[in-house]
Design a protein around this nucleic acid. Structure first.
Lengths: 335, 335
DNA sequence: TGTTAGCACTTGGGCATGTTGAGTGCTAAG
DNA sequence: CTTAGCACTCAACATGCCCAAGTGCTAACA
């Protein structure tokens, strides 16, 4: 059997199966795709593909369906990214309009992506390492509780309540605020860990310990507050795409709800800067996603966007949508 | 037939059905509950209940299941709130610990409530009308874009990007900031609509229009930013509770994703200050929730907490959990 | 050596049929 | 008003049958 035709057969199986959701047999294959050979030949090829673990038969007299490994080969070597339709391009373009909030943009992005792909869309808050400190505010909520607010020039706002351990006076807070502000305004968020200790050292000894606590708060805001959050949309698509097809959606919903799991998942996916990364079925580290695939890519300075859906999905189109959305996102947020 | 027994029969049907998920027949009823009469008598009672539209039979020779109307009567007149278990009380109590963020508290609350009830839990951000303005910040993001930040003394932070319409100088922003801050610091958020216009009037004429725009931004932050958001958890429970039982979860997920729908739903539910409100099946304004019930109540100064689940749910326990959680929430957030 | 036609074989799905058991409604008697 | 008894209904299950789709294999063929 010829190697190229074997791949062609695999490709046809994947495409038909994704489309029809039914095991595909040799005869149907030669009818739908004009491979120049008979069904018997296809059968031989299919036997080989099965031996190699690329496809499998649910039962003896049924057609074949792709395995995880089959999808992997399809994604890596066979499929070509499908260009987006004009309407889709337009929809993405319209994201450019409206000079809104980062939050707003992300929210619209994630909705758009879920509609484009008919899957669950996920986006991680952008990394803002290059952002500069714009403003710092300390607000006394209770005698021992201080709200720390860090505003970056990108428009992102981080906030956190910290426990001072002992009573705090408003005057002390004001003093420290101006100290901090004077010394770190304009500093890159990423540099805060290096700069903050020296600021603390400049504070009057009796406020040293409070300053230390506040500095810790600021630092944690700088590296974790935003990038560790995700936004998602389109969970209802899970139910729709599985009418008839029992991918048990319970575990998937659980995974989606655990931000930690999703963050882990996204960051574990390689960071190929120009292609999208695909994680198929059992390749996923989380058991609940054994029947799901994740298609994701980075945008801006390293955060991730992507979608999650059943392994049986239209990879070429999905990958195209994810890539396109990521590009526009980078452009808008000034990667 | 005696009126009290009729109600007792309805109660038994509801309880058995919620427990077993299967239509319940006359014979099983007399066995499980020691009503002092025979199954034939029960049959007569059931016929009456069916005539009144309180129960229905899926098909001729099956048992009966409660209708929406039946659940309504059950909730209104029959059921008694079940006391929580010691473990449950303890779990709620532990919410009191950790003097954290409002966001943190809400997030933990919603998780707890979903675990307690095995349903989807929803909480609306607290109303902060009584909160005072603590700080105002304007940040220039682009020549025509200003980030407006409003910090309240409760620790809540609102942010919004607004479009100035023309180029803005940093000096102008600084000036306006101190003007606004000087005049509205300490003001109740709820009073901003009345106070802001006079502040705008105090500004130099050439900055009047910019001031107006900023004031609008502040105002929208004061009334909408937070209370118009909801947090939820436990969507995976939807899938679990419907194994075997096809409540089509697609529409429900859609509703949950539309914050607008959920907000509307919650605020449409009466605000009985000490009881919980229940909306059953088709009583819900949203079609997708025709097979779902919402159990909710207010907390603090009027925001809502609640759960959403299949109409076939354990109302007494659920209502108890919602009520208890709302009480603690009020206490923590200083209703 | 690769391709093809033909054929026996497997098996899930659809269908018609029969059986069972839970549950009802009704009637007549207590 | 309650109860026992009984005829009736109907979903759920089981059984048997056939069909179509699909496979694997073998032998002939280019």
């Amino acid at each position: 059997m010829s190697e190229p035709r074997k791949l062609e057969v695999l490709r046809a199986i994947v495409e038909d199966y994704v489309h029809s959701r039914e095991p595909v047999g040799s005869k149907a294959l030669v009818e739908r795709h004009h491979l120049g050979v008979s069904s018997a030949t296809i059968r031989n090829d299919m036997a080989v593909l099965e031996e190699e673990g690329l496809i499998a038969a649910p039962h003896t007299s049924a057609g074949r369906i792709p395995t995880d490994k089959g999808y992997r080969l399809f994604v890596d070597r066979i499929s070509q990214v499908k260009p987006l339709s004009a309407a889709e391009r337009r929809a993405i373009h319209s994201l450019l309009e409206g000079p809104d909030d980062v939050d707003d943009i992300l929210e619209r992005t994630v909705r758009l992506l879920s509609q484009l792909t008919n899957q669950v869309a996920v986006v991680q808050y952008p990394h803002s390492n290059r952002a500069l400190v714009r403003h710092v505010e300390f607000v006394l909520l209770a005698p021992q509780q201080v709200l720390v607010v860090l505003i970056a020039d990108t428009g992102s706002v981080g906030q956190k309540v910290i426990d001072a351990g002992s009573d705090v006076s408003n005057e002390a807070l004001m003093l420290l605020r101006s100290r901090f502000l004077g010394n770190i305004a304009g500093t890159q968020l990423a540099l805060l860990p290096q700069v903050l200790p020296s600021v603390v050292a400049l504070c009057p000894p009796e406020l040293r310990s409070l300053a230390q606590t506040l500095a810790q708060g600021l630092q944690s805001l700088s590296d974790t507050s935003r990038e560790e959050r995700i936004l998602m949309a389109g969970t209802a698509n899970l139910a729709r795409s599985n009418v008839d097809f029992p991918l048990s959606i319970g575990p998937v919903l659980e995974a989606l709800e655990e931000q930690v799991v999703m963050l882990r998942l996204l960051s574990d996916m390689g960071d190929d800067p120009r292609g999208v990364t695909v994680s198929i079925g059992r390749e996923n580290p989380y058991d609940g996603l054994a029947e799901a695939s994740v298609v994701a890519t980075g945008y801006g300075s390293g955060a991730k966007v992507g979608i999650l859906g059943p392994t049986r999905m239209d990879y070429p189109t999905t990958m195209a949508a994810v890539r396109a959305v990521a590009r526009y996102l980078s452009r808008i947020l000034g990667g």
